[in-house]
Computed example of a mutant assay.
Amino acid sequence: MLILEEMQSRGHEALTLLHHAPSGLRAALAVHSTVLGPAIAGVRLREQDEELAVRGALALSESLTLKAALAGLNYGGGACVILMPESGVEDPHAREALFRALGRQVLPMESRVVLTEDIGVSPADIAFVAQETRSTLGMNTDTSSVTGYGVYRGMKAAARHALGSESLRGVRVAIMGVGAVGRALAGHLHREGARLTVADDRPERALALADTLSGVTVVGCHELLDAPSDILAPCGYGHSVRSQDVPRLQCRLIAGGEHHPLSRRGEEAVKEAGIVYMPDFAINSAGLIAAATGLEAAQAAERVYQIVNRITAAAEQYGKAPHVVARRMAERRIDLIGSLGASASGARPAGGVA
């Protein structure tokens, strides 16, 4: 009943457990909202237990709803978290079977769900899914690099509000997680002259980045929260910043590519600490925008920049925290467009922008 209570409190529409023994498919598919259109479901492949997979799908799908709404897309939010098969997916045929099995399982739901890549999943994997269902996005988009550039542009807009200038030259940025998005973000920040400290739960990735970019400091994940910084950029798997760790933070702004880096309690804690938090669904949407609309990376990132500028302007006007303003903006669009009801044909728009 705890899962059902969480679904009710977050406003989820559905949670489906997917299973296909021959391919090793075990997954949790959450649909948070289809008010604006079919739920875009980011697909993740990770080694984790069932409970974490289910709770991760619920949290990620809520973020996707808010992200799509704030970006002006005619999509709702979903998430699909696949548990790593016991035999792994190193064999290319095994990987193909896994993702084609996912597509086959989702086929009956294709009017409500659209699958796209997320952590551990590539455009090639989504192409396998697309062999079984039309409900896919992002096969031809390098969403990680586009997302990283969008986070960089959004960070500049947020820095103007939190630090007084959007120039990041000499600004101390601590990046938690240097996977595809974190690496892309680090590259853009390094080119501008930011002072970077990085950490990753796979230390070899952080060390490899430091070998590529001069002047980057590598620390452990636990030490990163104590590192002096102006901006903390969480780019990991979720909940990188626990509420009890907030008093350790020395940053003035939290802005990164990670979905739900803070819990609701954590959001309140950083607000009380005087730290500006630009939420994930506002700043990490460039990859989704590009996949959904066909925009180039620069155009999608510019849209993120404008979104963050709107949020900070409203935050300053009304004296509210940016993360509170961002959520209200997203919810207001859902309420307004949802109040229109279905179109005359009874069909919802399948994509594009409002």
Rank of each mutant, 00 (worst) to 15 (best):
Q306E: 14
G287L: 00
P38V: 13
V121N: 10
Q244K: 11
D200N: 12
D91Y: 08
A297C: 12
L98T: 08
S9Q: 13
A315P: 08
K271A: 15
H19A: 14
T116L: 03
K156G: 12
Q8C: 14
L98G: 07
E13N: 01
I254Q: 06
T133P: 09
S263V: 06
V106F: 04
Y152D: 04
E331D: 12
G76L: 12
T65W: 10
A94T: 14
R248S: 15
R348T: 08
A227S: 15
L253S: 11
A300T: 00
P234L: 01
C251G: 07
V241W: 09
T217C: 07
R328V: 09
G24Q: 00
S9P: 00
A94R: 15
S9T: 09
R153D: 02
L36E: 08
V304D: 02
R205D: 02
A68K: 07
P247R: 10
Q105P: 08
S87M: 05
G238K: 02
V198D: 00
V181G: 01
V178P: 05
V241H: 13
S343K: 12
L213I: 05
G179F: 01
Y277S: 01
D201G: 04
V129Q: 08
G352P: 06
S345R: 09
S87K: 13
V308E: 06
R264A: 13
G170A: 06
A342C: 08
R348C: 14
A350K: 09
H323I: 09
T293S: 10
S243L: 14
V178I: 04
G182N: 02
Y318N: 02
H20N: 12
G287V: 05
V219D: 02
P108Y: 08
D280S: 10
E47T: 05
I275F: 14
G37H: 11
P123R: 03
L36Q: 03
Q8T: 10
Q48I: 10
D280T: 03
A342S: 13
A313H: 09
V146F: 00
S167A: 15
L2C: 01
E331P: 10
E258F: 00
A286H: 04
M109G: 05
E6M: 15
L52P: 05
G193N: 09
R46M: 13
G294V: 03
A206T: 01
S87D: 13
S23K: 11
G193C: 14
L253K: 13
M155W: 07
G274N: 07
L102E: 07
L25T: 11
M278W: 11
H323P: 04
A300V: 10
L70P: 01
L137Y: 00
E96F: 02
R26G: 05
P261W: 07
A27W: 08
M109R: 10
Y318K: 13
G257H: 01
Q299N: 04
I3V: 14
A130D: 14
L25H: 11
